[in-house]
């Protein structure tokens, strides 16, 4: 099940032997459009149309005095509310997702490296180990973390005993939320990095070892640049879902101080009467922020092959 491994190529990885991925040579408007038609239609109806609809909702105005009733309008008030009232939530979303991405990278790289260069015949087994937890269900595992990190659980008790836990809790704090995010999206970091390392020629790394006596220099100058497409894909695949997540903050965080944008969107949609426009505005703002960050990031580190 090397499925996810292919995601490494989001960063422009997989290539035909002998250099750059070949540009398609076949001109064939008709066949191409025929092949594209159903998929593109699907994306237009179930991705583009909903986005347009959501945009319309975010601009709606409420009938004064009738909460839950809106009329079509071009009113940016909801965006104002979204940004002014929920700025801390945006901050937390980006901060937590950024931290989780960083931690996931630190954990994922050695694992991916070991799988690619050290594991030998154990490679397949390690790959299964990375993916299989998906099937236990994300929610169930997050709940398990809540119990493992709970106040009376083994980790918190030990730390308390050693006086290393100033607040007395792990759950209900941002530490637990970031830990949960890191955990849940780790496989999305491991597999693309693994895929790009696996394609790299170990001989090049050996050559690097000849050139730079220091292992760390070899890593920084040779190994890391070679796996950059995978790192790029991995950080995107970790950061984006983490920034939009609300389950970890819901299950591992506190009622107030660790809520992320996702929590607000969810509750505006489901729990607040008349919350639709604000929820829609929040969604769009979140998406805009993420797309802007992705754009900057890809421009800084990536290749155009990403697309």
């Amino acid at each position: 099940m090397s499925a996810l491994a292919h995601l490494g190529s989001t960063g422009g990885g997989a290539q035909a032997p002998g250099g750059a991925a070949p540009e398609p040579t076949k001109k064939g408007g008709f066949t191409a459009y025929l092949l594209l038609l159903p998929g593109v239609l699907w994306l237009l109806v179930f991705f583009v149309a909903p986005m347009v609809q959501l945009a319309a909702v975010s601009l709606q105005s409420q009938f004064p005095g009738y909460p839950g009733y809106y009329y079509r309008d071009v009113n940016f008030g909801s965006y104002l509310t979204a940004i002014t009232e929920y700025l801390p939530h945006f901050g937390r979303s980006l901060l937590f997702a950024g931290a989780a991405t960083l931690f996931a990278f630190v954990l994922a790289y050695p694992l991916a490296y070991a799988m690619a260069f050290k594991a030998g015949k154990w490679r397949g087994v390690m790959m299964i180990c990375v993916i299989a937890p998906f099937f236990t269900s994300f929610i169930l595992r997050t709940v398990a973390w809540r119990q493992i990190l709970a106040d009376e659980g083994p980790i918190a008790s030990t730390l308390r005993f050693l006086h290393l836990l100033p607040g007395g809790h792990i759950t209900e704090t941002w530490v637990a939320v970031v830990a949960g995010l890191t955990y849940n999206f780790l496989p999305f970091m491991v597999l693309p990095i693994y895929a790009s390392l696996e394609r790299a020629d170990p001989k090049i790394i050996e050559a690097g070892g000849d050139l730079y006596a220091n292992g760390l220099t070899t890593f920084r100058r040779v190994t890391l640049p070679m796996s950059m497409p995978g790192v790029l894909a991995g950080t995107l695949l970790t950061f984006i879902p983490a920034a939009g997540d609300y389950v970890n903050a819901e299950l591992l965080g506190s009622d107030t101080s660790t809520k992320m944008v996702g929590n607000v969107i969810e509750s505006q949609f489901f729990k607040v009467l008349g919350g639709f426009p604000v929820a829609a505005a929040l969604s769009f703002t979140l998406m805009a922020v993420i797309l802007a960050l992705v754009f900057l990031y890809v421009r800084r580190y990536g290749t155009e092959e990403l697309l």
Binding site: P241, D245, Y246
Partner: peptide
């Protein structure tokens, strides 16, 4: 590149 929550919210409105 779109967070799931945005996908979910937009589909719900649609």
């Amino acid at each position: 590149a779109t967070p799931e929550i945005v996908l979910g919210a937009s589909l719900l409105t649609l």
